[in-house]
Design a binder for these strands. Structure first.
Lengths: 199, 199
DNA sequence: CGTCTATTTGAATGTACTCAAAAGCGGTGG
DNA sequence: CCACCGCTTTTGAGTACATTCAAATAGACG
């Protein structure tokens, strides 16, 4: 690989999962990326702002959450390394976001803005496919979460999460996992104790 | 309006909410539609099949549901008149659907298949925008449902549903509403009694 | 080290479920 | 047109899952 592209190793591998790029396409793509660092607790996006970037997490961990009418946070998504994040709807409509995104750990990101995306789509149409797949995956992820709330108990949802994202359940503070699962921190604490006893 | 287009009044009005079509574009669009009638309890799509059409409900009522590992149905969506339905993911990937769709009432539908969509996108590019909006709306709808399960009690979810889709809560049998909300029919029955007493 | 926040533990409570049975309702056939 | 059957809805009683509030303990960070 071209030495200049080395900093983009992870994101290129991520793209390669769905589309195959030539060297010059890779270079074009990477030239449109903007690196960004985020300290723990910093916002990537605040409710009310417009989401102007699609963001790839090269290192670190972000969370996407919704603030309800009682001021309580509900986590919709965790984004560790090699995940994309943004408010897809705000990004595409240009309307203010109802979601917030912030860093749970110091993170290193790569961002592409809308003009960059449009340029990319014009020059490398197969990226449209890549983006459509991202959109689909987001839809599937949400649909699966709806089903898991309809069909499963908190215990099952927890096991699913910790099975699906191995390692993540020790890396993320309990209270955030509880928020993601839709239970209280106290209850998740008891749940964990019960599960460790079982083994 | 051209007399030939009258049977397509509803769907054209629906499209017009997002894109403006010329008369000849309308004619092209309608020529690609295939009418279909469905009797109560008939399937539009069965788990394992590939979703080959985007379907507009002209009349009637459909439901989309997921069958869990215990054989229990979990309703993800109701689609009354003037709604679109399909398994977006199966339609776009060509993979077998994990969802099923069937009719809760005798229904009249209009369908367009993938070749029709592609032809339409080629000749009338603004339809891509329309389709993208459909996709976004589906994403938002799922995201909202996740939030409603994280943030709200069954009672709040019920009030939200009956407020949002006025009339629908008397039209849909209780057990299906319970399945949509993620509660047992028994519990929803008690909930309703409690709510009518309140007034 | 002290302060602040996160986690754990306990006790009481509320929300929603299960199982069982009765009542209601719609369609079908005699 | 009525009687019956099957399915939906309601009601009751007991139980399990999950929350609230309060307090103790443990960890993180300056």
């Amino acid at each position: 690989m071209n030495d200049e592209l080395k900093p983009y190793k992870n994101i290129l591998a991520n793209v390669a999962r769905h589309v195959t790029l030539t060297e010059s396409e890779k270079e074009l793509f990477c030239s449109l990326l903007r690196p960004k660092k985020l300290r723990k607790r910093q916002y990537l996006l605040q409710e009310g702002d417009v989401s102007r970037y699609e963001t790839f997490v090269d290192k670190g961990l972000l969370r996407t959450y919704y603030l309800d009418h009682n001021g309580i946070e509900h986590i919709l998504q965790f984004s560790p390394e090699n995940w994309w994040t943004s408010d897809l709807v705000s990004f595409n409509t240009g309307k203010p976001s109802k979601l917030s995104i912030d860093a749970l750990e110091d993170s290193e990101l790569l961002q592409i803005d809308k003009p960059g995306m449009d340029l990319l789509f014009g020059r490398v149409p197969k990226f449209e496919r890549f983006y459509r797949i991202q959109f689909q995956n987001a839809l599937v992820a949400y649909a699966n979460r709806v089903v898991s709330h309809l069909a499963e108990s908190a215990e099952e949802r927890y096991l699913e999460l910790s099975g699906h994202c191995v390692g993540l359940e020790n890396r993320i503070p309990l209270k955030y996992i509880a928020s993601y699962l839709g239970v209280t921190p106290e209850f998740l604490s008891r749940l964990r104790r019960k599960l460790t006893k079982k083994k």
